[in-house]
Amino acid sequence: MQISSTTESKQKKESGKRLASGDGETTFYSVTGPSLSEKKQKRKNIAERVMGGIFFVCGMIAIAFVLFITIFLVTSGVPAIGKIGITDFLFGSVWASTAAEPKFGILPFILTSVYGTIGAIIIAVPIGLLCAIFLAKMATNKIASLIRAAVELLAGIPSVVYGLVGMIVIVPMIRNVFNLSDGANLLSAIIVLSVMVLPNVISVSETALLAVPKEYEEASLALGATWTETVFKVSVPAASSGIASAVVLGVGRAIGEAMAVMMVSGNVANMPGLFKSVRFLTTAIASEMSYCSGLQRQALFSIALVLFIFIMIITLLLNFVFKSKKE
């Protein structure tokens, strides 16, 4: 792409002349007059080079941000793990950060996050996938745009609003239905999370389903399959990698959600049980951050580091899935 500057300037002078004889108002090249002095040209070359440099810096900034976040999380998360001991930290089942003899085992948080995410995915994926199939392959345009608007709204609602509705509607409901003393438990969190994951699952799988080549479906129809059979036996398998990435994206959203979960899960550091008040990795950080100090504070950063590693694994997985689709 690099043209040497002398030929470039020659071209510019010529084009400048030609343009000036035509109309001077052209939007493509309004700066150059018929007599472009060498000085002006030089200044423009410098501007070009400076802007190129600025864009390069902009391009690097995303990498810099990721590096910054990684470095800060690692440097503030590792010391506590060193002090507590990695096995005691990851596999200790008691979290008593403010006790006289503090214990920092985050196994309850890890398991709660894993169970909560699995639960949300088990509820959200079948519903979301069926809805996406309906949306992409069955619905008329009007109904499709209605569902799409609904899904976009679900995706846009702030997580605290979900938390509030969960707190006022879901938690009392769970308490009454299952005759519990407190409805703020893992089940309530799973229900709220599944609603929050739904839009991700629907929109990503819909995109994947829409990208399936028409020929596949036509071939299946020509062989005598009905439309429903075609969609489920041809289109869905053909879109499977996209659907898989929808699920992984949903996992990422569920495992990283903090505020909504904090409002409905009861926030006690128990080992997970469907009807027990629990604490997730995210809420463990959020609930103690405002009053912590010393080793407790460092341990919270270590939890963040664990969560970050989970998320990085998901991102890598996602990249891998998308990449294999491209090939």
């Binding site: 976040i69 800060f72 999380l73 950080i285 969560l307």
Partner: peptide
């Protein structure tokens, strides 16, 4: 890097923002 940033949960942004 951009995809990674899109996937990081907001609570981690909160902590990183606090640290940085």
């Amino acid at each position: 890097a951009s995809e990674t940033l899109a996937g990081i949960p907001s609570i981690i942004y909160g902590l990183a923002g606090m640290l940085i």
